[in-house]
Amino acid sequence: MEFRRLGRSGLNVSEISYGNWITHGSQVEEEQAHACVKAALDSGITTFDTADVYANTRAESVLGRALAGQRRESLEILTKVFWPTGPGGPNDRGLGRKHITESVNGSLKRLQTDYIDVYQAHRFDPTVPLEETFLAFADIVRAGKVLYIGVSEWKADQIRAGAELARELKVPFISNQPQYSMLWRVIEPEVVPASEEAGLGQIVWSPIAQGVLTGKYLPGQPPPAGSRATDQQGGNFISRFLENNELLEKVQLLKPIAEEVGLSMAQLAIAWVLQNPNVGSAIIGATRPEQVTENVRAAGVKLDAEVLKKIDEVLEGVVISDPGLGG
């Protein structure tokens, strides 16, 4: 495993991080979830990402139990706040002070930890003054409940506004968590430059495009049973790719490139996002421990300019890079 500094902060994260969206508490039984976390730990992963909304708080609880007994100082635990949790009352969502304060306390209990390494605003909340949000973040940092603040799927102007408030309040604002892959490059034109200015690094999700970049989804054929495409949440994110037969055909043309550099297609996809110097870590998910063991082999891989050029040539015309589609 290789490690990188997250943005301009002093926090080191593993190049590959383990995330439990969709899987823990819903798609995968607890015993299997624990086996996947063990495989991640055995592979050198130290960075674990979750959110209170995943499986309506159950995913945090599963991760907390799976990590119980591990040396806390050797882990980086990330979670998020914004989406509705619990019964869905009027203050059970968003980035207001009440919801942030109550949510961080709930996450700490479920994760069985005294502090969260990076606490992330899961989306931007236009209904709450940004000053209120960042003051609440400042308070939970000062209280020792959180070490660093991050965001997820924020646009460039939102990142800049948040960074300005973070500087005023002396809040360590260090990361953004966007979707990013060979196929989905919407962060490159605006979000990455804004993040570099503000000292943020990216912790990217869906580096294999919900499995599309493994090549298992074939044009004109139904998705394999048990795949992300058959999950209600995962299917919503993957549908834009599966409905594009030209895209699925071009993905198949990546196979010889992967073989040329001695990687599986999933490893090639993960290694590709890690070539971006603003990316601190790529999040992988898994339903089986073997998937973790295979995908971590993308850590430390360097793809030369000729390989990157071949990938761009193969995917020309199907890459999505409109910054307006982010967030």
Rank of each mutant, 00 (worst) to 15 (best):
E2N: 14
R4G: 07
S9E: 12
L11T: 06
N12P: 12
N12K: 15
W21M: 07
T23D: 07
H24L: 11
V28P: 00
E31Q: 14
K38C: 08
A40K: 09
A40L: 08
A40H: 03
S43K: 04
D52N: 15
A55G: 05
A55Y: 05
T57N: 06
R58T: 07
V62Q: 11
G69F: 10
R71Q: 15
E76V: 15
E76F: 10
I77F: 09
I77R: 00
I77G: 05
L78P: 05
T79G: 13
P84L: 13
T85A: 11
G86F: 03
P87R: 08
R93A: 14
L95E: 01
K98W: 11
K98C: 08
I100T: 04
S103Y: 05
V104W: 02
S107A: 15
L108Q: 09
Q112E: 15
D114A: 15
V118P: 11
Q120W: 03
F124L: 10
D125A: 09
P126S: 09
T127S: 13
V128K: 11
E131Q: 14
E132Q: 06
T133W: 07
F134Y: 09
F134I: 04
L135M: 10
A136S: 12
D139Q: 14
R142F: 06
G144D: 10
I149M: 14
I149Y: 10
V151M: 02
S152C: 08
S152D: 01
A156R: 05
A156T: 07
Q158Y: 09
R160A: 14
G162N: 11
G162A: 13
L169E: 12
P172S: 00
S175P: 08
S175Q: 01
N176K: 03
P178Y: 02
Q179H: 11
Q179C: 11
M182N: 04
L183R: 05
W184G: 02
V191W: 02
V192W: 06
V192H: 03
V192L: 14
A194K: 08
L200G: 02
G201P: 04
Q202S: 13
Q202R: 04
I203M: 12
V204K: 01
V204H: 01
S206I: 06
Q210I: 00
V212Q: 09
L213M: 07
T214A: 05
K216Q: 14
K216N: 12
Y217D: 01
L218C: 03
P219K: 05
G220S: 07
G220T: 03
P223I: 04
A225S: 10
A229T: 00
Q232T: 13
Q232H: 10
G234L: 01
F237V: 02
R240F: 01
E243F: 02
E246N: 12
E249N: 11
Q252K: 13
L253P: 07
V261R: 11
S264M: 11
M265E: 06
Q267E: 04
A269M: 00
I270A: 13
L274N: 05
A282D: 02
I283M: 07
I284H: 07
A286Q: 02
A286I: 13
T287F: 01
T287A: 13
P289K: 01
P289N: 10
E290C: 09
A299N: 02
G300R: 02
D312M: 03
D312C: 08
E313D: 15
V314W: 06
G317N: 09
V319K: 14
